[in-house]
């Protein structure tokens, strides 16, 4: 790796000061993307700002009334080991356990997964489906934006120099709601999604009250397909309604052909994964 300096600030304010003073600085959470990119030369920096020693970035707090506060540097294993979180957001716990293998999950954070802004990031479609928001701190103060507005291009997010993601907030699960993220990979683990679908549903007496559907790896950014979720609102829970939503998701996908799959195959996967994720989310919603 090329030479760089290292700093481990103890507060958000100190981190913002460092990042603002060093425009080429890079934020380090678990390092499972960043260190690979620095080593390969895909990214360069003169200063790595390690945010893992900042208390807010390590916060993991679930409150049935307030929802979930997930510090941006919390590693995946803490997410799926958190008993309250596992009960309230089983899909999030499951998705955190999909990232890499055990060693990767010991370091990799959901915040890093989002900030890295890969179209195939596994946690992002689910965060979007769950209506999560990003809490950002910067030289001008703090701001909050929906996760679906955070990624702007492959590897690029909306953060401006000096800003960092402090935490993610997920609203409390509504009664009779469920969620699920499904991806397709050729192996059983340790692979990058060919396509993925994250969904959340809220049911009301055999009908959908609302739904949100988002896709991975079929557009330059993780993709919220608003019309697919909206099409379910008010409709009965049935194979037809879910099949129609899955077709809308497929129609919204703008995939490319690469070594992992053709555009056509990815579009096909969007329909299949969306339908299966909806079925799983509905099953979960019926249970609570």
């Amino acid at each position: 790796m090329k030479w760089f300096d290292y700093a481990a600030p103890r507060s958000v304010a100190e981190a913002v000061r460092l990042l603002a003073a060093h425009p080429a600085a890079r934020t380090l959470a678990g390092g499972t993307d960043l260190l690979v990119q620095l080593r390969s030369g895909r990214k360069e920096t003169d200063l790595v700002v390690d945010i893992k020693r900042i208390p807010e970035l390590n916060e993991l707090r679930y409150d049935p009334a307030a929802g979930l506060t997930l510090g941006a540097a919390v590693p995946c294993y803490r997410i799926y080991q958190h008993a309250g979180l596992r009960l309230a957001y089983p899909a999030l716990a499951e998705t955190a356990s999909l990232i890499g293998g055990t060693q990767i999950q010991g370091r990799a954070s959901v915040g890093g997964n989002l900030c890295n802004a890969s179209p195939s990031a596994d946690t992002v479609p689910l965060l979007i489906a769950l209506s999560a928001t990003c809490h950002i701190a910067g030289p001008q103060g703090t701001r909050a934006i929906p996760v679906e507005d955070f990624c702007v291009a492959p590897g690029r997010n909306i953060l401006t120099p000096g800003e960092l993601l402090v935490s993610l907030h997920v609203p409390p699960p509504a009664p009779h709601s469920g969620a699920r993220y499904l991806r397709f990979i050729p192996r059983n683990e340790m692979d990058i999604a060919v396509a993925g679908a994250g969904v959340s549903v809220t049911l009301d007496h055999g009908h959908f009250r609302s739904a949100r559907i988002a896709l991975a790896a079929v557009a330059p950014t993780p993709l919220l397909v608003r019309e697919a979720g909206d099409a379910l609102a008010g409709r009965p829970v049935s194979a037809e309604s879910m099949g129609a939503a899955a077709e809308l998701a497929k129609a919204a996908a703008r995939p490319i052909t690469d070594m992992r799959g053709t555009a056509e195959y990815r579009r096909h996967l969007c329909a299949v994964l969306t339908r299966r994720a909806l079925e799983a989310a509905v099953a979960q919603a019926k249970g609570n």
């Binding site: 390092g31 260190l35 390690d50 990767i104 370091r107």
Partner: peptide, 29 residues
């Protein structure tokens, strides 16, 4: 591999297994 895939560099860091190729020495303070 030096990029997190192979696990040959696995160590236990504060009770969790990690790939030591994806941890900076400085982070281990």
């Amino acid at each position: 591999c030096n990029d997190g895939n192979c696990g040959a560099c696995t160590v236990i860091l504060d009770g969790r297994i990690v790939n030591s190729c994806l941890v900076l020495g400085a982070e281990a303070d």
